[in-house]
Nucleic acid binder design. Structure first.
Lengths: 113, 113
DNA sequence: ATATTGTGTAAGCAAATACTTACATATATG
DNA sequence: CATATATGTAAGTATTTGCTTACACAATAT
């Protein structure tokens, strides 16, 4: 981690450890030590990763006594989603199949549900 | 670009130049010089970026005479989309409202449809 | 055959990354 | 107050990254 980070979401999620951190705190805030317990790297290393995530807006911190709870700000991923979504037409996946599923249900509601 | 690249899609799209290259060739193959004309960096620099994109499966090359046409393999972005999609519920987009709509339909099927 | 065009790749370099250990500081707790 | 706990941050380091220039080489054109 450099002193002058890029503060870019794409760059932030490029690191597998940072993606794991996001996965970890996606559904519940955790303090730094709790997060660090899930990794083999040192506590300061995790702290530095979180700093990057904060700088790009993917994590916010709520201080509570001496603990600092990290909360994932997942809507920041909109930027990534927006870029990727331009190209969804090039493959078949959940996004597409959900859409199809929905249409199927709508078409079938009268008859079999 | 190192000799031993990570060959990881997340890492590949972390670089803004590489994202621009993908945007450029998304809808039509282009040879390397044509791609490089769109950037201020040197031709070899572009060549190295494309090497990274090839290594992670985002670009394939078709040789034609002395030219090498680069084609974007956009379905490789499925990996990124898959990761991001887990969190779509955390912001408001089509996907979210679709999902809620789906649940609403499922919950109501017995009673009112 | 010679020159031109399209491209890969090596060598070198500055900056960024991902770590580590050591140390600083603030908030509990006995 | 003296410790223990939770965390930030600085300094040092090995790698990786992104870029440049120089050079190699195959396919064309003249």
């Amino acid at each position: 981690m450099s002193v002058e980070a890029r503060r870019d979401v794409f760059q932030a999620i490029a690191d597998p450890t940072r993606r794991q951190i996001i996965n970890l705190i996606a559904y519940q805030s955790m303090n730094l030590n709790a997060i660090a317990d899930n990794f083999s790297i040192s506590r300061p290393a995790v702290s530095q990763h979180i700093k990057v995530l904060i700088e790009c807006g993917m994590v916010s911190v709520r201080q509570e006594g001496r603990e600092r709870f990290c909360e994932a700000k997942l809507d920041t991923l909109k930027e990534v989603a927006g870029w990727v979504d331009q190209y969804r037409q090039f493959w078949n996946t959940q996004f597409d199949s959900l859409d199809h599923y929905l249409n199927r249900i709508q078409n079938n509601t009268q008859s079999d549900q």
